[in-house]
Design a protein around this nucleic acid. Sequence first.
DNA 1: GCCCAGGCCGTTTTT
DNA 2: CGGCCTGGGC
Length: 989
Amino acid sequence: MPPSTPNHAILNGLNDAQKRAVTSKAATVAILAGPGSGKTHTLTARVAWLVDHVGFRPEDVIVATFTVKAAREMKERIGKALGNDREKRIILGTFHSIARRYLAAYGRHIGLSQKFGIADDTDSRAIISRICKRLQLNVDPAFARAWISKKKAKGTEDAAKPARQEVTNVAGLQNLETCYREYQKHLETTNLLDYDDLLVRCVELLRKFPSCVSNVQTVLIDEYQDTNGIQYELMKLFAQRHQRITIVGDPDQSIYGWRSAEIRNLWRLLREFPKTDEVSLEENYRSSQSILDLSLSVIKQDSKRYDKVLKAIHNMGSRPVLRRLKSASAEAEWIVSEVRRVLTLSGSMLTYNDVAILLRSASLSRHIESSLGKAGIAYKMVGGFKFYERTEIRTLLDYLRVIHQPENNDALARILNVPRRGVGDVTIRSLLEEAETHSLSVWTVLSKHCRGDRTAKTRITKQAEQKLSGELLRPLDSIRRRIGEATGPNGTPLGLVQMIEQLLTTLEFEKHLKTAHPDDHEQRWANVQEFISLASDFVRDMGSSDEDALPEIEGLPQTKEVEVLSRFLANVSLASDAQTGDADQSKPLVTISTIHAAKGLEWPIVFVPAVYKGSIPHIRSEDDNEERRLLYVAMTRAQSLLYLSCPVFSSNGNGERTVLSPFVEPVERAFMKKGPCLDRPVMSEIARILQRQLPPEDSIFQGLPAMFSLEDNLFPVDPEEAKQDANGRSNRGHGYHPDAQPSKRPRLQAPSIVQDSAEETQWWKGYSTTMEQSSTFTVAALPGFVSVAAHQAAITAANTKADAAQKAQVVKRPTSKRPTGQKSIMGFVKLDSDQSGLVATRLPATVQPSNSSPAPRLVQEPQAASAAIAPDLAGHRLGAGKLIARPSAPIEEKTLKRKQYTCFSSSPTRPAAAEDDSSGKNTAEADNNETPPEPTRAAACLHVTTCALPKGHGGVLRRPGGLSRENITPIEKLRKPFKPLTITLKRPS
DNA sequence: GCCCAGGCCGTTTTT
DNA sequence: CGGCCTGGGC
């Protein structure tokens, strides 16, 4: 797009609130954006606005995100908005990666070695547990690690916050502090920074040398609710020259408290920048209203939360489902069956790409992966295992790290005996000890020992010594010498790829894989190849554009980061996963993801399995409210169909009963008990929400596979019922699930397991899954991202009627400042007049209409629906002990005038929207669990009349299933063998 | 007696 | 996929 006429184009398709946010002239802008409200779109547009309209140079703009995924997405979208590759000049990335760039460029000013490495999780854990052991500190290393991390993450400014009383005994505290000191000392001698240090040191740098960021005009922060103390400081320091900050966030989606994120930072910002322009994005373009309603009813259980409006733009849609299954494996198989049912009945409107299964813990994926595998459904797993964490890749990385930094003891320790060199655990441990006590690096100790300069105290066998010297020390030394020097094969410096290849030959790595992993060495070797190609991509990308570079600042020379290796390693440490050359975009994949990794994304169909106590809220979680928000995030990912499910018996072997998640239990009755009837009206409405074309009815049913069940009836709605069944088989013919058996008959399980696994191996051929080939997908290719904006554009264009209704409802707003209708979040949390701290309170839910003249008293009686809330409201970091509200400042007048609905987003406004649905598509709501009688049978009837079996589809008699229960049993037993037949979406016609 | 290697169990969420 | 236990080899 031509830069000359940017303004209008940028604002195209934005709603009023979004336009206000994008064009706000205030220095600091806080955008409060609920799920699906077009947050990324708005932030992107604001960046474009600031560059194209206001005229900031791209290189003077910092955009910080929390995940690599979000950064990538943001970059892509800003690129589209700006054009001319100008997005590449923007300083855009995760907090950690931006901090690293500054440290690489200017770190020497604060005494940082140029070649610092990054200690990842594994490293710091190893270091800390070694320290604890060596000094015999009586602390749990994991706890110590968390404690240290929290201490760093808290930041330095917020001293007002009292230390939490986790560590009660003084000795314990002292031990922790010793551990902390030793840990830092170790990092320093090995020239490493851990993740938190990147931020801490960058804060130090920018405080001492503000000129580093003297060019920065404006700073934008995505997912602001996830900032922790140190990131808040960093944000301010980035912006220290002009104090222009835009933040986007949603307190309800704060799910990183365990990583020291502080929702309080929102109030902190508003307090420190009182002129902040607040904008709320209150329209949800993503989900059906029933999904939104139910999600809100979950999040509203948190009485301390800042209640905000979230209005569905879409129609009611079909009610979310809460399904109970017998076991985790039954649950997984049910998901498969439901996925098939929905996709099939959508014609080809929906594909696997439209389905996501969101998990509290990555470990829950086992059953689901196996079910999908058995069914031949390709999937990708996001979050959980990462490419770079595979052992073979880690080993190579550790070699590279040792080449890069010989003093990296931890990396060296991990590779001393890989491949096997007859050096055992004890020897390695002892070497580390020796090195640490003598302030030497292990590398030095070994080198000297092998050269005979200094005999190591650690006993090393002659054989091991020879191998270490010949296979490790000398080859690596030689590679290291050749970096940067023009001594490579053709007089060129040894490149990254050649370096890796050199390593592979010297180590005889393929041979090593064969002996170490005889079963799957091929896969692992393939991973190694993949790794090489990633490295080669990296080198290429780095050569073509110098995106990581910071803009030159006059009189402030940067350390040029020439070394490829160094940057590659940093990139690996800071990337959540490898971005591989998008292998198969063509193949639709179901997404399995942790809820955390799903934030910001959306899918038409979302499953949230395992909604039981212990899973969500997780048994080890400290903050139930955060767990609730997590569920809220998961639920609000769904656009048109949302399924929660819960096994009745846990799969931990003893057949213990699960308890439904306390977040779901209170609203249990709002769910349907099984999947909706997917008749024409329901499907049409789904199509409308997704802005897609629903194929004609007859074409859908012509494509129906044989024995297709039109309803969600393959599994009993009440799994208890199945238990009664005399022969132990569930009455709907899915008696093959070993775990589904009540624990009483362990004997019978053995044969079925054998059968299962035989079948499994059979089906594992012919397709590949992420388990085998984790890197065949790109995160950027995730279906979720692009759509809010797309929807919004489409909707504004198409749905003018709804738009008009919307406008009628929303107050006309003054252009630049917060509209009168919108209450300030500061009205919710008010700054006390003295400096001592934040004193918060909350308006009573029953606040009078706007004309009541006296400023309303801030209410603190607990029986008022909303009691007074402390500053740390929703602040999960502070104890509840000091919840006091002191009404000292009168409420801003503005807040009095706000329209009432802003306080009561709960229900009152709903009916109107429903009525507005002129096309009468709201039937879905009526479609409830108890298997609706006649009318909803339409589809089934249709099915009978139009379903023509494809000819030559085998000689076995197959009748359509799902019509009458009585008919099913014998046929259903045959179901299993036909499993792979089920999906034949497109018949050759 | 010491040390290496192979089998078995449990696994929150992420930069 | 790592940490712990037991068995085999130096």
